[in-house]
Structures are given as structure tokens and as C-alpha cells.
Design a protein around this nucleic acid. Sequence first.
DNA 1: GGGGTAACCTACTTTCGGGTAAGTACTTGT
DNA 2: ACAAGTACTTACCCGAAAGTAGGTTACCCC
Lengths: 133, 133
Amino acid sequence: MTRIKEASTIQENKKLVFQECPITYVMERIGGYWKPIVLFNLLSGAKRYGEIRRAMPQITEKVLIQQLKQLEADGLLLREAKPVIPPHVVYRLSESGKALQPVLYAMAVWAVAESEQNSPLARKDLSQFPAIE
Amino acid sequence: MTRIKEASTIQENKKLVFQECPITYVMERIGGYWKPIVLFNLLSGAKRYGEIRRAMPQITEKVLIQQLKQLEADGLLLREAKPVIPPHVVYRLSESGKALQPVLYAMAVWAVAESEQNSPLARKDLSQFPAIE
DNA sequence: GGGGTAACCTACTTTCGGGTAAGTACTTGT
DNA sequence: ACAAGTACTTACCCGAAAGTAGGTTACCCC
């Protein structure tokens, strides 16, 4: 008699757990590789699309747009487009996005401490970590 | 004359940017959906494999093991296995892992504030957020 | 000697994110 | 008349991640 695995209710469980684990909530909103990096780039102030792209040469245009759209739909940043030619689009953090500053700062502190341990050459400092506004 | 897109050097760029953006460093080590959640569950202390699994019914066994292995290989947690039958395996945060406590705490603070805004019903408090040890 | 238990492992399949490359609309500059 | 700039969009493809389902070991208990 082969028993059946109890893993089939995972999709149900997911919904319940959102109410339990705060980190799960965070991952649903800013999870993934790129979103925190985009948010970090906007911490220092509103930027045009092209500025963001040049600040992140690692990401492809397609994925950048996609991440920006998702972050906008998720209420983490605001898109302001002036109807001119050539287009002029500015992205800025929403209030929810600004509220992530402590999270990103804590990440940066950890990153600096860790990379110092691993390779003392790559020493950095946080003196000019973006504040808000 | 069709010009060639300048996106072909993305793999090269990625390496360079690690030295520039601290958030990128963080994403390389704890990026992805599950890793922060696993780390959060270990913040309150060492746990057996089965405890972690029961604490995270959303994740499949396969993926949980995989994430634990990756976190171990990445030096974020330590695995201690007692050679008994049935097996007895304990996972605990390494020093690097413990150093993530402020990051996870900042995330939890944000999550609580945000979920209060969105649905005042889901009110939570952080009074028993895991300290370390 | 059959069932329970703990911490896995393996094979298979589907899904999804991401990479590459190119095109578009409209204007300004030469 | 052509290139350049701006903010995208589209199509195609690929590999990695994740889900599903089963198996394994070796002991203990009844």
C-alpha cells in the first residue's frame, strides 16, 4: 500500500503562511534578484529611465522595464511621464518604497562587513549611503 | 546598416558591479524567494530538519533541502549531523547568518507597517521578534 | 516481521525568468 | 536625408528553478 505524499496542499498553505511570517510578505513584494537593486538605485532620488539603465549595466532592457512595471503595480514606486517627444519618464519611490530604506541600509551594512572578511582589499564605507529626499 | 545591441557584455558587467553595489552582493548570497525565509526560521535558534519543514509547509522537501545545502555551502548556516538511526540533523546560523538579524528585523518592521496599512485586520507586533542566542 | 520514523535522494515534467536581438514613434541636430 | 536619442515593445529561445511522486536506509517497537 503506497501512501500518498502530503505535499499536494502547498498552494493552499502558501496563502495561510502570509499571515504568519513577515518575511514571506516581504518576499512577495520585493523578492527576486533585481527588485532590491532597482530600489537601491532610486533611494538617492528620482531618476529617469535612462539613468537607471546606465546605473545598472548588468540588467537587460526587457527585464528592467518588467521590474519597473511590477514595482509600480506593487505600489513601491511611482512613474511620472511627461507627454513630450522624446519621452521623458521619471521614476521615484513611493512612501512604501521609501520605507524600505532601513532594510536596504541593513543589507549594505552586512555586505560591507562580509566582503571585508572575505577580501580585505574590497574595503568600502557607508558614509555616503543614500538617505531619503 | 543594422547596429548591434550593446547588451552582449552583460555577463562581464555583472562581475564588475559586485564591487560597486552592496545590494548586488547581498542578492548573490541570500537572493531568491526562500533563503531569507529559511534564515528567519533559524533566527530563534538551531532547529532540526523536521522542525524547519513543519515550520514552512509552503515549501517542498526537495526545494527545502536544496536551499539548506546552498546556504550551508555559502557559509550562512551550519549543519550538524549525529550519526544515529534514525538520523538527527540540526541546522544553526553561522556567524555570517547571525549577522543578518538586523536585515531580517528591518524587513519584519516594514512588513508589519505595510500590512497594517493594507488591511488593518492583520495587525501584528514585533515584541517577540527573535533575538540571537 | 510489518509498520513507523528521520533525513534525505532521484527521476520526470512543467513553469518561469531571463538573455538576445531587433523593431517602433517621433523629434532634434547636421 | 540621415543619424541619434528616448522609452519602450515584440519574438524567440534557453536553462534554471520548482513541483510531483516515488524510493532508500537502518533501527526500534509490538
